[in-house]
Simulated assay, not measured.
Amino acid sequence: MYKVESLEQLMAAVPVIRAAVPADLSIAICDLEKFLAYWPGENINLHIQEGQLLHAEEPLTAAIRNNTPLRAEVPAEFYGFEFTGTATPIHDTEGRVIGGIAVQLRRQRELRIISDQIAASLAQASTRLMQVADGAGELAASTQELLALAQKSGEQVSETDKVVAIINNVASQTHLLGINAAIEAAHAGDKGRGFGVVAQEIRKLSNETVSRARTIQDTLGAFKTATSQMGVSIERIASIVQEQAATSEQISAFIEEIQQMSEKLNAFAQKL
């Protein structure tokens, strides 16, 4: 029960109360019939006029009539903004109800809207970032597979070099055989003339084989170099992708922390 000697005494104390409270308040004081004074806040003004009669449905009227303090959450539909209102009966020194005091505290709806928007934006950003991280992970796996294929191709080229070496060896032996056959044909004179033609063809085939083998070897060498360079590039790409995936996870964790802070901000705004 709140007792005062007079409502005028309470009205004199209101400016001190408003200055002492670190919140934007509006305060109204009434007697049993009408409002006696109203102090609007900077951001909350119900436009109550001095001498304005109390409405029968006014919370302050109910508080005085029932001699019971009331508290209500007033939605934005009525005044364009949300606020918490209290209505408290005032008693004189003998305990009789002589009036009431109504206090309105604007709720920080804008703050909650901003925190909700931040939370929604962060949720979308987190979802997109997780998609990027998943894509980076898949790309990293693909580059590893491609790198393995490039390495295998290099190994196969190395094996092919052995085959080319064997061909060169056979060609060399064939060429030597052709030379020996030509010498023997020369020793045989006219009887070895036909054999000499065959020996010449053998040497010709040997020379062509060596030439073809060198061409193949040069081609395989170029392919091996390109494969090696491709492997280096793939390794670099894989390293970058892995770094991006790790960075995405770090950013995602940071966004999650901000989301938690936004939720705390929202919870705090709900209490304002």
Rank of each mutant, 00 (worst) to 15 (best):
M261P: 05
D218P: 05
A23V: 13
I216L: 13
Q131W: 06
Q52W: 01
A267T: 14
L205T: 14
A28T: 02
T215L: 11
A222Q: 14
A19L: 03
T174K: 08
D92T: 09
M1T: 06
P89V: 01
M11R: 15
P15R: 13
E201Y: 14
A182E: 09
I90G: 04
V103Y: 10
L147A: 08
A56I: 05
S158W: 04
L7Y: 03
L205Y: 13
D190G: 10
A222V: 11
Q9E: 15
Q104S: 04
T227Y: 07
T84N: 13
E184N: 10
D190K: 13
A102Q: 05
L149V: 13
T209P: 01
L25T: 01
S172K: 03
R236I: 08
L10P: 02
E82G: 12
A182V: 07
R109W: 11
S248R: 00
A120D: 09
R71A: 13
L46S: 02
V4T: 13
I183C: 01
S6G: 09
G192D: 07
L53K: 11
E57I: 07
L7R: 02
A148I: 11
S6E: 15
T61R: 00
K152M: 07
R214S: 12
E5H: 15
L272G: 10
L139G: 03
S252F: 03
L32A: 03
N67H: 05
A37L: 06
V103W: 03
M1V: 12
A165W: 09
E155S: 10
P22L: 06
R106P: 12
V164C: 11
I183K: 04
V103D: 00
Q131D: 12
V103K: 00
E184T: 12
T61K: 00
A186Y: 14
P15A: 01
A13F: 10
I44H: 00
A136E: 10
R203F: 05
M130I: 04
L10S: 03
D116V: 14
A171H: 01
F254N: 14
T127H: 10
E82S: 11
E263P: 00
A12N: 15
I27F: 02
E208F: 01
K271P: 06
A37F: 03
N180C: 11
A165P: 06
S172F: 02
A123S: 09
G231N: 11
N266E: 12
E155P: 06
I237C: 09
A102C: 04
S158K: 14
S206N: 00
L177H: 06
E257R: 09
S252K: 02
I167V: 12
A267M: 07
T247S: 04
T174A: 07
Q173A: 08
A13D: 14
P89W: 00
A182F: 08
E145L: 07
F81L: 01
E249W: 06
I240G: 13
E58M: 07
M230V: 08
I101R: 00
R106H: 08
L36I: 08
D134V: 02
